[in-house]
């Protein structure tokens, strides 16, 4: 299901959901929930966006039913802890690689995915100042290291 251009801002969160459907369905569920909530604010009126959002909602309802025995889905406070732990795990992996001078595509993706998951945490309420700073740092690092590698430079 292609993300309509009006909902471009959620395409990476949606892609993260697809990438985690098998690896970690809880992460996939909350990434979809974030995409749904944000998508509705962006555009839920044009036919292509409505069609996309209705399908996304159908999928979310199906996932919630299938994962009903999982506390991270049935209790949002448990889900919040799961997503935060997962985001921090991604962040720490990339940060350790960075501090060891190991720059590669996987660590760039981990920094970027961590930043997307800090966005997803906003479905549970206002982000903590620490999470805001971690998101900013992870996003900046992902962009900076990506550009360095693209230009054949060694990140500092």
């Amino acid at each position: 299901m292609a993300v309509p251009p009006q909902l471009k801002a959620i395409q990476h969160h949606y892609r993260t959901a697809l990438e985690h459907d098998k690896r970690d369905p809880v992460v996939a569920y909350y990434c979809r929930l974030y995409a749904m909530q944000t998508g509705m604010k962006l555009d839920s009126k044009t036919p292509e966006c409505r069609k996309f959002l209705v399908k996304l909602m159908d999928h979310l309802e199906k996932m919630k039913q299938e994962l009903s025995s999982n506390e991270s889905i049935s209790q949002e406070i448990v889900g919040n802890a799961h997503i935060e732990n997962y985001a921090l795990k991604m962040f720490l992996y990339a940060d350790n690689e960075d501090r060891s001078g190991l720059f590669h595509k996987n660590m760039i993706k981990s920094f970027y995915t961590a930043s997307l998951l800090f966005d997803v945490l906003s479905v549970f309420g206002e982000l903590s100042e620490e999470n805001i700073q971690q998101r900013k740092y992870a996003r900046w690092k992902a962009t900076y290291i990506h550009n360095c590698l693209k230009n054949g430079e060694t990140p500092q």
């Binding site: 409505r50 909602m57 919630k64």
Partner: peptide, 27 residues
């Protein structure tokens, strides 16, 4: 026609909002 179209869109939006609230056990 414009009013009818926006009214339909608004109803569908409300329906999505309700489904979202239900999904999150808010109703």
């Amino acid at each position: 026609t414009g009013t009818l179209a926006s009214s339909v869109a608004s109803t569908e939006q409300d329906e999505l909002s309700q489904r979202l609230a239900k999904l999150r056990d808010q109703i």
